[in-house]
Protein backbone atom coordinates (compact mmCIF):
# COMPACT_ATOMS: atom_id res chain seq x y z
CA UNK A 1 0.00 0.00 0.00
CA UNK A 2 1.53 3.25 -1.08
CA UNK A 3 1.04 6.58 0.65
CA UNK A 4 2.53 10.02 0.20
CA UNK A 5 6.32 9.84 0.07
CA UNK A 6 6.76 12.47 2.77
CA UNK A 7 5.05 10.17 5.29
CA UNK A 8 7.84 7.61 4.82
CA UNK A 9 10.45 10.31 5.22
CA UNK A 10 8.77 11.53 8.42
CA UNK A 11 8.63 7.98 9.77
CA UNK A 12 12.30 7.43 8.83
CA UNK A 13 13.33 10.54 10.77
CA UNK A 14 11.49 9.22 13.82
CA UNK A 15 13.15 5.82 13.26
CA UNK A 16 16.61 7.48 13.31
CA UNK A 17 15.78 8.98 16.69
CA UNK A 18 14.51 5.63 18.01
CA UNK A 19 17.68 3.85 16.87
CA UNK A 20 19.80 6.54 18.52
CA UNK A 21 17.73 6.15 21.70
CA UNK A 22 18.24 2.36 21.78
CA UNK A 23 22.03 2.83 21.84
CA UNK A 24 22.07 5.79 24.20
CA UNK A 25 19.85 4.11 26.82
CA UNK A 26 21.65 0.77 26.45
CA UNK A 27 25.07 2.36 26.98
CA UNK A 28 23.79 4.36 29.96
CA UNK A 29 22.23 1.19 31.42
CA UNK A 30 25.48 -0.72 31.28
CA UNK A 31 27.50 2.25 32.56
CA UNK A 32 25.14 2.40 35.56
CA UNK A 33 25.59 -1.34 36.06
CA UNK A 34 29.36 -0.90 35.94
CA UNK A 35 29.15 1.83 38.60
CA UNK A 36 26.92 -0.44 40.73
CA UNK A 37 23.61 1.41 40.33
CA UNK A 38 21.45 -1.62 39.64
CA UNK A 39 18.10 0.17 39.83
CA UNK A 40 19.14 2.83 37.28
CA UNK A 41 20.58 0.08 35.07
CA UNK A 42 17.24 -1.75 35.02
CA UNK A 43 15.27 1.39 34.17
CA UNK A 44 17.56 2.44 31.29
CA UNK A 45 17.77 -1.14 29.99
CA UNK A 46 13.96 -1.41 29.92
CA UNK A 47 13.71 1.90 28.08
CA UNK A 48 16.26 0.70 25.52
CA UNK A 49 14.25 -2.47 24.86
CA UNK A 50 11.03 -0.43 24.67
CA UNK A 51 12.65 1.81 22.04
CA UNK A 52 13.75 -1.30 20.15
CA UNK A 53 10.13 -2.54 20.04
CA UNK A 54 8.96 0.93 18.96
CA UNK A 55 11.60 0.92 16.20
CA UNK A 56 10.35 -2.52 15.12
CA UNK A 57 6.78 -1.19 14.77
CA UNK A 58 8.09 1.78 12.75
CA UNK A 59 10.11 -0.50 10.45
CA UNK A 60 7.04 -2.67 9.80
CA UNK A 61 4.91 0.39 9.11
CA UNK A 62 7.45 1.89 6.67
CA UNK A 63 7.69 -1.45 4.83
CA UNK A 64 3.89 -1.67 4.64
CA UNK A 65 3.88 1.79 3.05
CA UNK A 66 6.37 0.43 0.48
CA UNK A 67 9.21 2.57 1.78
CA UNK A 68 12.68 1.50 2.86
CA UNK A 69 13.41 1.83 6.59
CA UNK A 70 16.76 3.56 7.02
CA UNK A 71 18.60 1.61 9.69
CA UNK A 72 21.93 3.07 8.66
CA UNK A 73 21.32 6.59 9.91
CA UNK A 74 22.07 7.31 13.56
CA UNK A 75 22.00 10.59 15.51
CA UNK A 76 24.58 11.89 17.97
CA UNK A 77 24.65 9.98 21.26
CA UNK A 78 24.50 12.15 24.40
CA UNK A 79 26.54 10.21 26.94
CA UNK A 80 27.16 11.45 30.47
CA UNK A 81 30.26 10.90 32.59
CA UNK A 82 28.41 10.61 35.91
CA UNK A 83 24.97 9.17 36.84
CA UNK A 84 23.50 12.69 37.21
CA UNK A 85 24.93 13.73 33.87
CA UNK A 86 23.54 10.57 32.24
CA UNK A 87 20.06 11.48 33.51
CA UNK A 88 20.48 15.05 32.21
CA UNK A 89 21.60 13.79 28.79
CA UNK A 90 18.62 11.40 28.64
CA UNK A 91 16.33 14.28 29.52
CA UNK A 92 17.70 16.47 26.70
CA UNK A 93 17.35 13.55 24.31
CA UNK A 94 13.75 12.73 25.34
CA UNK A 95 12.70 16.39 25.10
CA UNK A 96 14.09 16.64 21.56
CA UNK A 97 12.37 13.39 20.67
CA UNK A 98 9.01 14.50 22.04
CA UNK A 99 9.22 17.75 20.03
CA UNK A 100 9.99 15.78 16.87
CA UNK A 101 7.15 13.29 17.54
CA UNK A 102 4.60 16.08 18.03
CA UNK A 103 5.60 17.54 14.68
CA UNK A 104 5.51 14.10 13.02
CA UNK A 105 2.03 13.41 14.43
CA UNK A 106 0.80 16.71 12.99
CA UNK A 107 2.35 15.80 9.61
CA UNK A 108 0.62 12.39 9.59
CA UNK A 109 -2.69 14.01 10.50
CA UNK A 110 -2.21 16.44 7.60
CA UNK A 111 -1.49 13.54 5.23
CA UNK A 112 -4.56 11.67 6.59
CA UNK A 113 -2.30 8.76 7.59
CA UNK A 114 -4.21 7.97 10.77
CA UNK A 115 -2.57 4.59 11.43
CA UNK A 116 0.93 6.11 11.43
CA UNK A 117 -0.40 8.86 13.67
CA UNK A 118 -1.70 6.25 16.13
CA UNK A 119 1.69 4.51 16.09
CA UNK A 120 3.50 7.80 16.76
CA UNK A 121 1.02 8.63 19.54
CA UNK A 122 2.08 5.40 21.29
CA UNK A 123 5.74 6.43 20.92
CA UNK A 124 4.92 9.86 22.31
CA UNK A 125 3.21 8.26 25.31
CA UNK A 126 6.34 6.16 26.01
CA UNK A 127 8.53 9.26 25.66
CA UNK A 128 6.36 11.37 27.98
CA UNK A 129 6.29 8.61 30.60
CA UNK A 130 10.06 8.32 30.57
CA UNK A 131 10.51 12.10 30.63
CA UNK A 132 8.24 12.23 33.68
CA UNK A 133 10.39 9.57 35.40
CA UNK A 134 13.52 11.58 34.55
CA UNK A 135 11.96 14.75 35.99
CA UNK A 136 11.16 12.83 39.19
CA UNK A 137 14.81 11.76 39.45
CA UNK A 138 15.96 15.37 39.00
CA UNK A 139 13.55 16.42 41.74
CA UNK A 140 14.86 13.69 44.05
CA UNK A 141 18.49 14.68 43.38
CA UNK A 142 17.69 18.33 44.10
CA UNK A 143 15.76 17.56 47.29
CA UNK A 144 17.58 14.63 48.85
CA UNK A 145 21.09 15.41 47.64
CA UNK A 146 23.16 13.52 45.08
CA UNK A 147 24.78 11.17 47.62
CA UNK A 148 21.48 10.12 49.21
CA UNK A 149 19.85 9.70 45.82
CA UNK A 150 22.66 7.55 44.46
CA UNK A 151 22.70 5.42 47.60
CA UNK A 152 19.01 4.66 47.06
CA UNK A 153 19.78 3.46 43.53
CA UNK A 154 22.34 0.76 44.47
Amino acid sequence: MKLASNTCSTLNKVLTNELTGINQHFLHARMMKNWGFESLNKKAYKRSIEEMKDADDLIERILLLEGLPNLQQLGKLLIGETPEECLECDMTFEQQKIDQLRKAIADCEQAQDYISRELLEKLLEHGEEYLDWLETQQYLIANTGTQNYLQSQI
Binding site: L77, L78, I79, G80, E81, E85, C89
Partner: peptide
Amino acid sequence: MYVCICRGVTSSQ
Protein backbone atom coordinates in the same frame (compact mmCIF):
# COMPACT_ATOMS: atom_id res chain seq x y z
CA MET B 1 29.68 14.58 29.03
CA TYR B 2 31.39 12.58 26.31
CA VAL B 3 31.75 14.66 23.16
CA CYS B 4 33.63 12.15 21.00
CA ILE B 5 32.22 8.67 21.57
CA CYS B 6 34.65 7.09 19.07
CA ARG B 7 37.74 8.11 21.09
CA GLY B 8 36.12 8.68 24.49
CA VAL B 9 36.98 12.39 24.72
CA THR B 10 34.99 14.45 27.23
CA SER B 11 33.89 18.10 27.22
CA SER B 12 36.05 18.83 30.29
CA GLN B 13 39.17 17.53 28.47
